[in-house]
Design a protein around this nucleic acid. Structure first.
Lengths: 256, 256
DNA sequence: TGATTATTTTTGGTAAACCAATTAATTGGT
DNA sequence: ACCAATTAATTGGTTTACCAAAAATAATCA
């Protein structure tokens, strides 16, 4: 156990230490690959040197090379053909450069950015959901809503039930990309929301009302009303979040 | 080389073959982990069995286990502490279940979903960009715009220069999450756009005008005008895309 | 008996080895 | 000189072995 005294100083020290070695091997590799491309040694469409070669050239194990390639593949910058090789996407160097630069620093721990992105995404999502929802979607959303109400009325924080409600709405958009994006944000949202104690008894009561409004709008397929209801729902969370975050932004214990 | 004759039949045959073995090892592992959690053998907050144990239990190499964990970590569902273990996020089983189900089938190759998501994202982005752009942003956007005009006026397809323009706008939002999301979509967008030949000489000319309108709106920080300009810009692409896609959706050669 | 230090075990991090498939090269025949 | 078939080398896919750090356990001393 760490001493309770002087844990402030200890914290900043720890942060410095982790900050120094924060450059993970894979990010370094990605950076070097970027350099290869930007410098012209590797042109779009070219085949990458074999993993073994890269491994040796960068002085690192092949596992890291594979991990880096995997990450870049997710972003569509590389394409790997089994038993043949890995190829650079046919994008211009400018595009590749821009994207790689930001892959390295892609982290969702910017609280405001997270909430803001969620806000815009969900506003669009609820409109699409209202437009396209099937009866099955409606059933699913309703069920999630009732779960939330049950949990919230017993006093517990129903953050996760709330999120399930929103996930079900996202599913009703019939747009897998938008749905996936919301899905990516959800765990971080939950973490931040519970961390900043957005949830109180009075809040839960009003949220129930808001959910019902959203549901009703989706049911009647009223896109405008759905957007309005979602906006007021999220606005409130946003405001509380900002206040709570300002008060508690020191406490960032690294637990799951 | 494959025979030119009967390549239609050959194609469908190949598609069947790949469709059968499409269940990648990591997706299978993710599915099994999900099962462990849903069945209650693994509760939120618990520590996962050691990688070696999972490796043995699932009858697969440790690399795949690590790959699967990496993927779930990206979605915030697992947290791995070096030399200690990997832990399940403290989310409710319901949330985890919902998210994992969709991770497996997360693919950006749904053409309409891609364009639609981009449409909504960029509309929000351009508003934020107009609100928050710095002079440096403006300079950067302008430079990208001029690159596009240069390329487009020489007759070549300037899809990528176009994308750089949009990336620069995204950067000006000062929202790293929204920016990252757009970045993730860009390579797939380019692929689809060039595949469906959205770009023509007349199109390039009108696009130049649209870009200038967008730029002017961002410069004068007029959010409404920016949104309007972006909407008309994207609307046109969307329409052409849909038409082009309907005509060419058979030709899906798997090249980078 | 209780705290503290050694020691052993277990962990994820890392590198290397093995495999089947593909590609390039070489060889042999025409 | 050219083409076919066979062999050799190279590829990513997959598994295994090794490492230092952490945790858990055992042993030691006050």
């Amino acid at each position: 156990m760490v001493d309770q005294i002087e844990n402030e100083g200890m914290k900043s020290l720890i942060e410095n230490i982790t900050a120094i070695q924060v450059e993970s091997p894979v990010d370094k590799i990605i950076g070097q690959l970027k350099q290869l491309i930007v410098s012209g040694q590797l042109k779009p469409g070219d085949r990458l040197p074999a993993e073994r070669v890269l491994s040796e050239r960068f002085g690192v194990g092949r596992s890291y090379i594979r991990e880096a390639i995997l990450k870049l593949e997710f972003y569509g910058l590389l394409r790997t053909n089994p038993q043949s090789g890995t190829y650079v996407a046919g994008l211009s160097i400018n595009v590749i450069d821009n994207i790689i630069s930001d892959i390295i620093k892609f982290n969702k721990d910017d609280f405001n950015a997270l909430i803001e992105a969620r806000y815009h995404l969900e506003l669009n999502a609820v409109k699409l959901a209202a437009e396209r929802r099937t009866d099955e979607d409606l059933e699913s959303i309703k069920s999630a809503m009732e779960d939330y109400e049950k949990k919230a009325s017993t006093g517990g924080d129903a953050v996760e039930e709330d999120m399930v409600f929103h996930i079900k709405v996202a599913k009703a958009t019939k747009n897998s990309v938008i749905e996936s994006m919301i899905l990516i944000l959800v765990p971080d949202l939950i973490k931040n929301i519970v961390q900043n104690k957005i949830c109180g008894d009075n809040r839960a009561k009003t949220a129930i009302e808001e959910h019902r409004k959203i549901y009703a709008a989706i049911e009647s397929q009223d896109m405008a009303k759905a957007e309005e209801a979602m906006a007021s729902h999220l606005d409130e969370i946003w405001q509380i979040s900002k206040a709570g975050f300002a008060a508690q932004n020191i406490i960032n214990e690294a637990e799951v």
